[in-house]
């Protein structure tokens, strides 16, 4: 029995000049533009609709955001260099560049998870006398709230308020002033205890939605690049052109992920 081979998986079609996967990835990226576009338009609507002075500023760590931007740019250049290496038949260079890409992806996700953890251990506490403070609870517990305190029959908590009453850039202690002196707060005096999760404010809701979706894309892209780099690398010997096409297509996705971050960084961290 003769095996039917799908046409244009390696060589380009004569009319379009493109192989199947390249058309496919561009159509997929078009749908991704609309997905992130919808979320960006939601951000604009929320940002413009926010009452004067209510939109939080400097809640995010700018140095960490900058490092993550530089890391993604580095990964973008290593992706394109790895593709160029394959075109020049330099296998070991390709392996080296993609290894750096995967490392950059891990660094990006590591920094992002550090930022998220910092948000989940940063609290707003409102007392019965109306005083509201932001800061860190002693022991840095995750997702603590008043119900959990009462359920655990905790009589009081140690609290380290931010030096600035309006909040601080978590992790950027040197920049925004760090913490004031620690204090004990009785559970009975607390009316609200909430960490800076997505439920805390509109800004944090859109921040976690946008950056969470982006981080999922980074993770998925890194998995695909790793699979092509490692377990599927045998194709290079059997069909180098097809293998190079796979690297190109995964690279296009990776550049798109970088593109999205180029807009997310100033919009979320700086404005």
């Amino acid at each position: 029995m003769q095996t039917e081979i799908l046409p244009y998986i390696v060589e380009p079609r004569k009319d379009t000049g493109l192989y199947n996967a390249k058309v496919g990835i561009w159509l997929f990226l078009a749908s991704e533009v609309m997905l992130f576009g919808a979320l960006f338009s939601s951000y604009i609507l929320l940002r413009v609709g926010a009452a004067e002075g209510t939109w939080p500023h400097h809640l995010l760590n700018i140095p960490l955001g900058t490092i993550n931007t530089l890391v993604l740019i580095c990964s973008s250049v290593t992706v394109v260099m790895s593709w160029a290496s394959l075109k020049l038949n330099q296998w070991s260079k390709y392996k080296f560049y993609q290894a750096i890409t995967i490392l950059c992806a891990l660094i990006f996700l590591g920094i992002k998870s550090f930022e998220y953890t910092d948000k989940f251990t940063h609290y707003e506490v409102v007392l019965k006398n109306g005083t509201s403070m932001t800061g860190h609870v002693e022991g840095s517990p995750l997702f603590l709230n008043l119900n959990k305190l009462k359920a655990a029959k905790t009589e009081s908590i140690g609290f380290h308020p931010d030096a600035h009453a309006s909040g601080h850039a978590e992790g950027a202690k040197g920049e925004a002033g760090g913490h004031g002196e620690g204090m004990k707060i009785a559970t009975a005096d607390i009316t609200k205890l909430e960490c800076f999760g997505p439920w805390h404010s509109t800004y944090l809701a859109i921040y976690f939605t946008l950056t969470g979706l982006h981080a999922l894309h980074v993770f998925a892209g890194a998995c695909v690049i790793f699979a092509i780099w490692g377990p599927l690398a045998g194709l290079w010997k059997k069909d180098p052109e097809r293998y190079t096409n796979r690297v190109e297509v995964s690279g296009l996705f990776w550049h798109f992920v970088d593109l999205v971050w180029i807009f997310l960084f100033p919009v979320l961290y700086l404005l």
Binding site: S76, V77, V79, V80, G251, H255, D258, L259, I262, F263, F265, P266
Partner: peptide
């Protein structure tokens, strides 16, 4: 950001 995006999309 737009200039940076143009560079990534255009060249990479």
């Amino acid at each position: 950001a737009t200039i940076k995006a143009f560079l990534v999309a255009g060249y990479f």
